[in-house]
């Protein structure tokens, strides 16, 4: 302390001038360096564009049977052939993508909102609130999810897309809640939360301004990976015959259902290989994106 300079004003070394980067921008630039994740984004974008543009890409009605053209092999008119009642497979694939993506996106959003909110509340307030929420989570986690879904779907009798989304949302949130709770528990102990309290922030302000922005990376990564899981779950349920009815709307899952027939499996590969391939491709690219996001948000990872 003896050599204290008289002027205290900014004699620290100035940093070289560079563009301001928020933590989000930094994460984005890290993400763009991950080739696999970028490829994943491109593939997923293509699938999304094709599904949305379905009516423009195909003149066929995905649900209209054509008695003269059943079980047709792929040719110039029907690029991927037709199914047992003469519907164009390619058209059904395009429209089916809409459902798969919609189910994946909305149900993962719903899971993240329910799980994230309950997890944040449990983690922040602790004590008996935490106790109650976490015991519900424990109970839901010991029930096998697929059986639970089958059970609910059976009760609801006629499955529509929205009832399916609801079922997914209500059964799959516990894992997310647990994840978010853990993250909030660690953030709650950070000094900047104490600093916010000392300034006079209310609990509400602390949760929304300080806790949630800092758990958001974890939530986003979780949501991405959940989307892949939900697309698979939809396909799985539909394959078992519990998904959305094929007469109402085509989905990749209920198209795969046709492969439960041995003749189809051996003689008509155009009926089940394309939807199977698309499910695999979509899930794979979403998972790559998720991995990329996780690395991008993790400031501790040295991998560039």
């Amino acid at each position: 302390m003896q050599t204290a300079p008289t002027t205290s004003i900014s004699s620290e070394k100035e940093k070289p001038e560079k563009k301001q980067q928020s933590p989000w921008q930094l994460a984005l630039s890290r993400f763009m360096k991950n080739k696999l994740a970028v490829v994943g984004i491109i593939i997923l974008l293509l699938i999304v564009i094709f599904s949305i543009a379905a009516p423009m890409l195909s003149d066929f009605d995905p649900n209209k049977p054509d008695a003269y053209n059943t079980d047709a092999e792929p040719d110039d008119v029907h690029l991927l052939g037709t199914d047992e009642i003469g519907r164009d497979v390619l058209t059904r694939l395009l429209y089916g993508g809409r459902i798969s993506l919609l189910v994946g996106l909305t149900s993962s959003l719903m899971i993240v909102v329910i799980g994230g909110l309950l997890g944040a509340i449990a983690g922040y307030y602790g004590k008996w609130i935490d106790m109650i929420i976490m015991r519900i989570v424990d109970i839901l986690l010991v029930l096998p999810t697929l059986l639970l879904m089958l059970f609910v779907v059976t009760i609801m009798q006629k499955t529509t897309i929205w009832s399916l989304i609801l079922v997914f949302g209500l059964t799959a949130w516990p894992v997310t809640a647990r994840l978010v709770r853990g993250e909030v528990l660690s953030i709650r102990e950070r000094e900047f939360i104490l600093s916010a309290k000392s300034i006079g922030c209310s609990d509400f302000q602390i949760i929304f301004k300080h806790v949630i922005p800092n758990v958001l990376p974890t939530i986003i990564v979780n949501a991405t990976l959940l989307m892949a899981t939900m697309i698979l779950a939809e396909a799985g349920l539909a394959y078992l015959g519990f998904g959305v009815a094929p007469e109402i709307t085509p989905t990749w899952g209920n198209m795969l259902h046709s492969a439960s027939n041995v003749t189809v499996l051996t003689d008509q590969p155009w009926l089940w290989i394309p939807p199977g391939l698309l499910v695999v491709l979509t899930v794979l690219s979403i998972n790559f994106i998720g991995d990329g996001l996780r690395d991008a948000f993790d400031t501790k990872s040295t991998r560039r």
């Binding site: 000094e191 900047f192 000392s198 300034i199």
Partner: peptide
Amino acid sequence: LRKARRDMQMVFQDPYASLNPRMT
């Protein structure tokens, strides 16, 4: 208490941990 805290403020030990990393 929130009002009273206006007159009493705190400076923390660790300037790395006491500032929210996501705020300018």
